[in-house]
Amino acid sequence: MKMAFVCNGSSARAQMAAAIGREFFKDAEISAVGSLEGETLDPMVTKVLSEDGISTENLTLKTLFDMDFDLDYALIVGCDEGGCPLVFADKVVEWDFITNLKDQGEEAYVEAKNQLKEEIKKFYMETFAS
């Protein structure tokens, strides 16, 4: 199964979501897609996730221009800079309420992490655990 976590405006939410997603979808090929940037891992993402024992090591980072088109799932985890990005996948899920991390401090990252953990767990339970 191929999944992408997509964030418009800042790639940090996508990076965080992809790392958390790997905890649930162990056999999936998962990428973090940032629409404006995405080639560099946000150091605050690594710091905040490491506090929960979640690794960002070997995280696949892409931009929208490099995103795969044969995805089973695209989970949009942030819609900024003009709305949600146009993505192609068998199933697209939009969570446009995840805290925007652009120019924010650690507290916002922790809030986004908690939101993402809850939504990804809920998505996993509703889609795969039944």
Rank of each mutant, 00 (worst) to 15 (best):
101 L>D: 01
12 A>T: 06
88 F>C: 06
76 I>R: 00
23 E>G: 00
22 R>D: 00
103 D>H: 05
113 K>D: 12
21 G>F: 00
123 F>L: 10
54 I>C: 11
128 F>D: 08
39 E>P: 03
19 A>R: 00
126 E>T: 09
114 N>E: 15
12 A>R: 03
120 I>K: 09
69 F>W: 06
102 K>L: 05
12 A>F: 04
68 D>I: 02
63 T>E: 07
74 A>T: 04
121 K>G: 12
70 D>I: 07
22 R>V: 02
120 I>L: 14
110 V>K: 15
38 G>S: 07
101 L>G: 00
3 M>I: 10
82 G>S: 13
118 E>A: 15
85 P>H: 06
25 F>W: 04
116 L>V: 13
53 G>H: 12
75 L>N: 01
17 A>M: 01
6 V>G: 04
14 A>I: 01
105 G>W: 03
96 D>F: 01
57 E>I: 14
17 A>Y: 00
25 F>L: 02
19 A>Y: 02
39 E>D: 08
71 L>N: 02
39 E>L: 07
6 V>F: 05
73 Y>A: 01
113 K>P: 13
109 Y>S: 15
66 D>N: 13
33 V>M: 06
88 F>T: 11
100 N>P: 00
4 A>I: 05
106 E>R: 13
89 A>L: 05
104 Q>Y: 08
58 N>T: 14
73 Y>S: 03
63 T>P: 06
84 C>P: 09
122 K>H: 12
126 E>S: 10
14 A>P: 02
28 A>D: 08
63 T>Q: 08
115 Q>K: 11
29 E>Y: 09
127 T>P: 05
47 K>E: 13
74 A>S: 03
112 A>Q: 15
39 E>R: 08
9 G>K: 04
38 G>C: 06
118 E>L: 13
65 F>S: 13
100 N>K: 01
90 D>T: 01
18 A>K: 02
52 D>N: 12
9 G>S: 06
129 A>S: 12
49 L>H: 08
81 E>S: 11
2 K>P: 09
66 D>M: 13
11 S>F: 01
47 K>F: 10
64 L>H: 06
45 V>Q: 12
